[in-house]
Design a protein around this nucleic acid. Sequence first.
DNA 1: GAGCACTGC
Length: 713
Amino acid sequence: MPSMASSNSSDAAKINQGTKSDFIPRRQKIEQHRKNLPIAAVEKRLLEEVSNNDVLIIVGETGSGKTTQLPQYLFNGGFCRNGGIIGITQPRRVAAVTVAKRVAEECGVPLGQKVGYAVRFDDVTSSSTRIKYMTDGLLLREALLDPYLTKYSVIIVDEAHERTVHTDVLLGLLKTVQKTRSQGASDMLNNDHSKAENSMLLAKENDGQCTNVEKHRRGKKLSPLKLIIMSASLDAKIFSEYFGGARAVHVQGRQYPVDMLYTYQPETDYIDAALITIFQIHLEEGPGDILVFLTGQEEIESIQRLVQERLPKLPESKRKLLVIPIFASLPSEKQMKVFMPAPIGFRKVILATNIAETSVTIPGIKYVVDPGMVKVRTYDASTGIEPLIIVKTSKAQALQRSGRAGREGPGKCYRLYPENEFYKLKDSTTPEIKRCNLSNVILQLKALGIDDIVGFDFLEEPDRMAIIKSMELLFLLGALTDESKLSDPVGHQMARLPLDPIYSKALIVASQFNCLEEMLIVVAMLSVESIFYAPREKLEESRTALRSFSSPEGDHLTLLNVYRASEEFFEKSKLVSGNEKAEKNLRKWCKENFINSRSLKHARDIHSQIRKNVEQMGLRVTSCGDDMLPLRRCLAASFFLNAALKQPDGTYRALSSGLMVQIHPSSVLFRMKPECIIFDELVRTNQNYVRNVTRIDFLWLAELAPQCYALQE
DNA sequence: GAGCACTGC
């Protein structure tokens, strides 16, 4: 999503409007703005609190300025003396990038010097960076190379209340790291020998960057680490208790008041209720745009149709209502429409998924309509399926939604349920770690030297069954030994790759099958959101386009063909018209071929990253040329847990779970129905569907995955 | 012959 405003960037956008000629006033304006932030009043007190407490919880409401100001206070307060870095983690890339830009401007320095950011594919830091914004997932990756995070003197975990799986794992890690660092190096080596040793060995294996660790092993004292947890909501208690009763302070926010309105009766049909409310606001309320929270694309498109059908029935003067949908899979050009001001006299009504809760801040919103429902991913440990279900929001989520009406002035929030229903809602959303597949989490923790997963001090315990299932998967993939230790080298290599464990395994196997060149592409393509884009009105055309890439062997080879065709087009275009023009031409090529260019770009980025990764690991990147047999055998050797056999009635039986499944109609093998297949993903909608399917030979399974399919004597 | 919340490495 290019240059979208994050929740923290709307102020930055306003101040950026200055030009060179008014540079001095702009600096004064920045100073003025900084002084007026609520947090500025407590700067001195915050510095004292950080000095006196190793862990500090800051509860800061929206608009307090905590994310931009606290790092600057700490820098000026001497917390970077001796070259230490202040690291601030964010759950999202846009936030890390936009806040870093803003803070660099406030400091009057070029981005990447004193102030910088690091997110996947994009590192804008240098040796002089002292205030570093980053994603929490990236800091976790850094910990694999530098287990004690020795570069950092302070780590601030921002937006901790969102409880992403990365934030939760990071907090667990930081708790251990802080303990170790405050004990000092000598204690560390004596009392915590095995754990420390394990991580260090890993750091050494991973690459040469273990100089810091080596230094400390020679007995130099590790400096203590300051930890600050920032949360926007009521739940400071859970963080405080987790860190042994850590001190929590509250910083006031700055929000306009939002009037809360409820229905008298529960609504049986929230779509209809939302529709009525939209028109009620439009006809009876003053100017201001409307934001409606819905659960998905289908709901959004149906309300969009309904509004447009009813508009002509209104008196001519009342028809100036502009409906704009926004959801993540919408092409970026269409997403940008939410930022364009409506024509004069028009009111915008934005129909959004929860992308508008945190990821995108839409200006001009005065009215929020909240039916109180949300679509969430869940995890069923017994089948491994992760179905999407529609559930009620939590209180915290409802508050977050209503807050979207009070950013620029007083607003109104229409909750489409009675007030007493609000009090029955759960306080906060179930943290992600309790509803996701844990194989990656376990792989990371093991790589950090934490072997006892069940005994690990999680902020909140994941389900025991989910841990066992994920360990089982890792064992079958060969990442864990019989003693549940990370295997050498496979487990360590898998932990190092930023991919789903099955994909990592596929790369490692591919280097032995001499088709790593091809598998890097397949894995990159599987790692992104749907590559094909089929608008309803051009279904036939998009099918024809797909046919030119499709392989009779299945979807994996089809994806390979798409990538290669795009690459060939791009290289040719580069020769003729140069790099920048070629990028533009590639986007056009995508459009003509009904390919999502954002997804393809993402796949290209992942491809170049994992190619570097496997080269650094010393894997041989060779190609199988035109012979696709090794590649299919390699897919069988890594996706063996996702194998299925055709039944007499034409459906399939998934071999590891016993579930009855069908090939998804979007697959190139939908009609061909080969005897035996492997698949990438099992999704449950009206039926069980398998997506991204490749034809294999049943006998390969016993040969290549005897741990699962040993032939009976 | 089907429809997919949102992030992140």
